[in-house]
Amino acid sequence: MKAARLYEYDPAMNVQLKIETVKAPTIMGPTDVIVKVGAAGLCRTDLHIIEGVWKDIMDQGGNLLPYIMGHENAGWVEDVGSGVTSVKPGDTVICHPHRTCGICLSCRYGDDMHCEHSLFPGLGLDGGFAEYFLTSERSLIKLNPNITPLDVAPMADAGITAYRAAKKAAKALRPGAYCVIVGVGGLGHIALQCLHEISGCRIIAVDREPAARQLCKDLGADFVLDGGPNIIEEIKQITGGGAQVVMDFVGELGVENLCWKMVRPGGELIMIGYGGKIEVPTAHLVINEINIGGSLVGNYTELVELMELNADGKVKMHYAEYSLDNINQALDDFKHRRFAGRGVIVP
């Protein structure tokens, strides 16, 4: 099969994935499923993988490279193990990014992302930047017949990450409260739509890219700001002292140390983007009683819920499509934010 493989890490991201022919995966166990990839989303984590940010984790069992990236996958069931009963060849599916065991305490609680024995196709073992990839029955959700893999693939990670964060935010957002979304790219534009559906809050979207700001306006943000040098003052003026919730989808490049300053006393900062380092005076945390916490990828049931919102036309993924042969152009365009929304690779 054709696949795009990473051969070396490079903090400057000057390396390119190699398009080559490799052996297709095969069924190894009774719950294994081979998926014919219909679409695979590009994620900022893919950029961090290439940069070597995940190297120590990925290479714990020895040098992983070369390997196939891609952890936001949707497609059609190609083959199944002897114990698989919930899907059959030909079914259209989206894949939760984790392959989980189902028996550890985290799985029993429904916290799939914290499974003690999870495997992560695309991050630590071969993923979906290829014609086929191997996953497990527990990871699959059958799609509505009217939904195509191209329309939803990035929701396998970006979508449920944004949805989970929006659910956390909604708990603190009464009607009329303010939520700031900083960085309205592939995840942020999903969070914006989710908040419209599950919260009566007022949404302030912040992004430096004109295309992203236009998308925010199209999606109904109450205020759209360009993130200029006076952004903290602008937020405080609109909100009357700060937002009840700020969602940071950037998490680096200095943005992480602006966001906590936008939170009103008693409010909350939810970190979704990563890569930087937050430095907050402890007195500020105590006196203003603000909370700062992270939010990881959503669990299996949250992906089910998001697919229902998508099927009803309430949350849609905006994307730019690239062929597998053009994946390096897609990565470069993503790095330099030449498209709004998400990039999607189609083998």
Score class of each variant (00 low, 15 high):
E131G: 13
L123R: 00
Q237W: 01
H318C: 11
S136E: 12
Y322S: 07
L225Q: 05
G251R: 00
L258F: 08
V184I: 12
R5F: 02
R174P: 00
T239G: 09
D333G: 10
A172R: 10
F129W: 11
C107V: 12
E268M: 14
M247C: 06
V304A: 10
G188P: 01
A212L: 04
V93N: 03
V87Q: 09
F120L: 08
G276M: 05
P229E: 02
Y109Q: 11
G38Q: 03
I198R: 10
G38F: 05
A12L: 13
I270M: 11
P154E: 04
D207L: 00
G110Q: 11
V184W: 00
G61T: 04
L285T: 13
L125T: 13
H117M: 14
L303E: 14
V22K: 04
A221D: 02
Q193T: 02
S118C: 08
G185L: 00
T135R: 05
A156P: 01
A12S: 15
A205E: 00
S295D: 02
V250R: 03
H336Q: 09
I19R: 09
L47I: 03
R5Y: 00
K277T: 15
V263Q: 10
D157K: 09
I292K: 05
G275L: 04
I141D: 02
M317N: 15
E252Q: 09
